[in-house]
Design a protein around this nucleic acid. Structure first.
Lengths: 218, 218
DNA sequence: GACGATTTAGACAATGCTGTCTAATTTTAC
DNA sequence: GTAAAATTAGACAGCATTGTCTAAATCGTC
């Protein structure tokens, strides 16, 4: 309801075909995510985008083309955000626990509670088998890259901080697993945790992580 | 292809309507999981079950009834297995690391790599929004109960083992998160890890868990 | 071997969706 | 203001699906 009003307002108020492409992509993401590929109807997307059905067929030749465009679009955005977050990984050891917890909050907020991230996760899990190459692409660009990049960051951090890590890849995977521990269940559907919950959860995760990998040294 | 042969062989060889009900439920789970609710066609299910379409309509009045029956059926099985696994949680401290790792392997194998478990997870994520009460039910009976039960088991274990746990619920959630750390990605679609991979992964998880929560004592 | 219940194959109407087409209308650019 | 490009509403064929119905075939049981 609300989404529809906003989207159609967008399409009508803004000018040019670019605005319509955006509006269509947003509406399509919404409907595909809600109904799955086969459940989503072009008409529904058209209404939600505030656009005529023919316009959709003009921009994206067929349903499958539109679907691919949606995935590509969301994936690009998610990846952009992801790497901007990774760039904020702590480099000093002064406030290790606090810095790591803040980093964990950023990661969770932007890569798990994010609308885009939830979309991509659901779409991958729903339609991943139908489009193996798409799935493969996401896998390499998303979790694959994150884990490796995070491992490298931990390796760098270990030079200046009292960390006793022998397998950095493992530590990175476990770090991610720990900070997602509390959000796993709620994340499967709509629930979005509050800022406070995110912080508490991150702090607990980091505390456990440091108990496992931190050296008592100073 | 293979599934079809097996299922129809079942339906034809075995006797009575009970066998057909089972055959239909299995085929329906398969197709619903592969295609989603709207993508799945009754005809496809009928063929895969080796049964006529009318028979399905005789047993389950309509598509939605069948869908509910599938969920209910799988959920019952998964829950049964789950609690039988929980009953094997270690009670002694002799071989803590090995026992916990073996327990983790059992849990992962039966509750994550399991066909049923994968089905239920995908179906919940795909159709959870369409059937909120179903989703709620799964949430309470599944992860909700597991976490609490596991917390109680850790509490009991802490009496006899050198464990320094102050929040048992948290420890339980983190234990589960850690033992799933390596399987997260592959689990989203078809990949099933080998026995050896499961063991290595579990061992690493338990090792980290004990580094965080184990006392050097004993 | 026969009777009652179940199952089957197939036809069937109703519905909804995709993707195309057209003719009218609006927007954009100059 | 005008001409070209984009958008719209609507009709349309083709197709798949759901759920019903019927008459024949098969099965379980006595």
């Amino acid at each position: 309801m609300k989404k529809f009003d906003l989207a159609s307002a967008d399409a009508r108020s803004q000018k040019g075909q670019f605005a319509k492409r955006v509006s269509i992509l947003e509406a399509a993401a919404d409907v595909f995510c809600r109904e799955g590929f086969s459940g989503a109807s072009i008409d529904e997307i058209a209404v939600e985008a505030g656009v005529s059905r023919q316009t959709i067929y003009n921009h994206y030749r067929e349903k499958e083309t539109l679907f691919m465009a949606v995935i590509q679009d969301i994936m690009d955005r998610v990846n952009g955000v992801l790497f901007s977050i990774l760039a904020t990984f702590p480099e000093r050891a002064d406030n290790l626990e606090e810095d790591l917890a803040a980093f964990a909050v950023r990661l969770n907020k932007n890569c798990n509670c994010n609308q885009d991230a939830k979309f991509i996760q659901k779409l991958i899990s729903t339609e991943g088998n139908r489009y193996p190459h798409l799935f493969q692409f996401w896998r390499e660009q998303g979790p694959g890259k994150t884990d490796r990049a995070l491992a490298a960051l931990f390796a760098r951090l270990a030079h200046v901080a009292p960390l006793d890590i022998d397998d950095f890849d493992l530590a990175a995977r476990q770090f991610i697993a720990l900070i997602k521990a509390d959000l796993q269940m709620g994340g499967l559907f709509g629930e979005t945790p509050s800022e406070a919950e995110l912080e508490i959860s991150a702090r607990k995760a980091v505390r456990t992580f440091l108990r496992a990998y931190g050296r008592p040294a100073a």
